[in-house]
Design a protein around this nucleic acid. Structure first.
Lengths: 109, 109
DNA sequence: TCGCTACATCGTAATATAATAATATAACGA
DNA sequence: TCGTTATATTATTATATTACGATGTAGCGA
C-alpha cells in the first residue's frame, strides 16, 4: 500500500485507522455479518456462503482474529469461530466516540 | 490491492466496506480530527499540521471529498474545507447500525 | 504583467492487499 | 494405516495505495 507514515500521527489516530482497515473489505463485513447471525461458524460455512476460495476465507479469518474481533476454538478437525464480544464493544465505542465528536457541528463552507 | 470480488457481496456490505476504507488511514483520521476541531481549514494548514507533503495531503482531501465526508469551497486562492454534516451523520448511523446488531451476543466459543 | 501563494494533477517508486493454486498439517473414522 | 475432511501456509499474480517531486493552474497584490 505504500508506506504509511505512522510516526506522524497519534496512537489514537493510528489505532482508529487500523480498526477501520479491518472493516475495509466486504468479505470481512460478510464474515462478521454471518457470525453475528449464526453466532458461530466454521471456515467451510463461509467458503460456501461467500463463494470465495478456502485460502482466501482463511486469510480473512486470520486478519479478523489477529485484530481481536473474532475467536477461533479448535473443535476436532474444524475451528469454531465466534465473535470476541469484548473487543466488539471496544470497536463500537471507538467509532462512536469518533463520530460523536462532530455531533454539534454546523456546515461552515 | 488485488481484485476485490465486489459482485459476491451485498450493496450494504460493499458500502460499509467502502466507508471503512475512507477512514482506514491515519492521515485521513487526522484531517477529520483537525476539521472537527477547527471547523474549517485550508490544505496548507494540514500540510503544516500533519507534516506530509502538499500533494499527499491534497490527495487525501480529494478522497475524503469524493467520499462525501467533506466539502471544499473555493475562496480566492485557497479552498475552504469543512465537514459535510449530512454525510457525517450517515456514516455515524451506518457504523452504529452495524455494531448495534451484535449488542446482545454472547461469546460462544 | 510579474511574482507569489495555494492547490491540483501527473508520473512514478515503494509497498500493501486480494485472490488462488499447490501444498502441508491435523483430527477422525473405517 | 488409509482416506477423508477441515483448515492453514506458501508462493505468486494482479492490482490498489501511499507518498512525493515536478509541473500546471488560478487568483491576487504590487
Amino acid at each position: 500500500m505504500g508506506i504509511t507514515k505512522t510516526g506522524l500521527f497519534s496512537d489514537r489516530q493510528n489505532k482508529l485507522a487500523r480498526m477501520a482497515k479491518i472493516m475495509a473489505h466486504p468479505a470481512r463485513i460478510a464474515i462478521l455479518d454471518y457470525i453475528i447471525k449464526a453466532q458461530r461458524c466454521i471456515c467451510n460455512d463461509l467458503v460456501v456462503e461467500l463463494g470465495l476460495a478456502q485460502p482466501t476465507v482463511s486469510q480473512h479469518l486470520k486478519e479478523l482474529k489477529s485484530a481481536g474481533l473474532i475467536n477461533g476454538a479448535i473443535e476436532g478437525t474444524s475451528v469454531c469461530y465466534s465473535l470476541n464480544t469484548e473487543n466488539w464493544k471496544l470497536y463500537k465505542e471507538t467509532f462512536l466516540n469518533f463520530f460523536v465528536d462532530a455531533a454539534s457541528l454546523r456546515q461552515v463552507c
